[in-house]
């Protein structure tokens, strides 16, 4: 089990501060590098530039070119090299510049990273974190707006998580780096620079591989992760104006799934809508629906519904708003569930 990074809670007067998700990630990476000299950051333009999204901003300046490595454009080489570093005891954190760029490294992730602990029968650990800015909403096109999380959740040996807010970003990246298993860390890029939130860094974090009920409700349950969490919270606020009381659960961990809070919620509300940007076929929402009908069969008042991206390549920016689940589509699904 990954120990919560208790000793890194901030005890000073500045424990409460305003953070964006980008800043939370940057501070989390910095804290992890300060805590453990074996933590290395590597990726395309992560050093001098600080990454396309500036998540690693200032790290090379403070930790040196040895620990923050600007690599060639070679994802397979980056991840494969990280695996080799991990074999020799390092804890590399690789940045994949955009979601769609992870596919050249897919072989290294699925064939090597996920399997070396197994293949060495426990004698080699793989504490590698692969950070992937994912999802759409920034007017980019395919390769730059994709949601490939299901590929990785389908692979035994990997852990897959996604943060949805600045405070989680700060803690989850540190917990992922502390984990002795490989963690694919999905960051909702369109939420990086949204307005800063007031956070309290003196409160210890919850365990990494656990979901969280963000909003209590009794009418129906929304389960979501990453970029859709903000969308679902907004939907719940809007529904409340119509007297509909929605419960919202942020999964946070996509593999392993922590569905006990979802089961408890569905036993209470009887209705579940799973929301994700990823295309629908064989996706995480399908897994959630299956497990919920297995565990909560007699509690369900309506079939589990899904609001997802479509089964197409990511569309051009003018069609993006039609592709991505938004407040209206979520509320429409809520209405369908309630009217069942």
């Amino acid at each position: 089990m990954v120990a919560p990074a208790m000793d890194r809670t901030v005890k000073t007067a500045s424990a409460t501060q305003k953070l964006t998700m980008a800043k939370g990630l940057n501070m989390g990476l910095r804290a992890a590098m300060e805590a453990d000299p074996k933590v290395l950051v590597m990726g395309e333009d992560v050093g001098k530039l600080g990454g396309v999204y500036r998540i690693t901003d200032g790290l090379q300046k403070d930790f040196g070119e040895q620990r923050v490595l600007d690599t060639p454009l070679a994802e397979s080489g980056i991840v494969g090299t990280a695996v080799g570093l991990a074999i020799r005891g390092f804890r590399p954190v690789c940045e994949i510049q955009f979601d769609g760029f992870v596919f050249p490294a897919f072989d290294q992730i699925v064939s090597q990273l996920a399997k070396l602990h197994f293949r060495s029968q426990g004698r080699v650990k793989m504490p590698v974190v692969i950070r992937i800015p994912f999802g759409g909403g920034i007017g980019a096109v395919e390769h730059h707006s994709e949601s490939p999380e299901s590929y990785f959740a389908h692979t035994a040996g990997l852990r897959v998580v996604s943060c949805s807010n600045p405070l989680d970003a700060y803690w989850m990246i540190q917990q992922a780096i502390e984990c002795d298993d490989p963690v694919i860390f999905f960051e909702p890029k369109r939420r990086y620079h949204e307005r800063a939130q007031e956070v309290d860094l003196s409160v210890p974090p919850q365990p990494l591989f656990s979901s969280r009920v963000l909003r209590q409700g009794s009418s129906a349950t929304l389960v979501c992760y990453g970029p859709m969490v903000r969308t679902c919270l907004d939907a719940a606020t809007a529904a409340a104006e119509d007297g509909i009381d929605l419960e919202v659960i942020d999964l946070r961990t996509l593999s392993p799934l922590d569905l006990d809070p979802v089961f408890a919620s569905v036993r209470k509300t009887g209705r579940l809508i799973a929301v994700s940007e990823a295309p629908r076929e064989s996706s995480l929402t399908a897994e959630i629906a299956t497990r919920v009908q297995q565990e909560c069969f007699y509690s369900l008042e309506a079939p589990v519904l899904r609001v997802t991206g479509f089964d197409t390549p990511y569309p051009p920016s003018k069609l993006e708003d039609d592709f991505l689940p938004d407040l209206d589509r979520v509320l429409h699904a809520v209405d369908r569930s309630l009217a069942w």
Partner: peptide
């Protein structure tokens, strides 16, 4: 540190071990 079943799978890993 391993035989590798994928052709060339070991090449970047060995490179990383050398980096270490």
């Amino acid at each position: 540190l391993g035989g590798y079943g994928i052709v060339g799978g070991q090449i970047p890993l060995a490179t990383g071990a050398a980096l270490a």
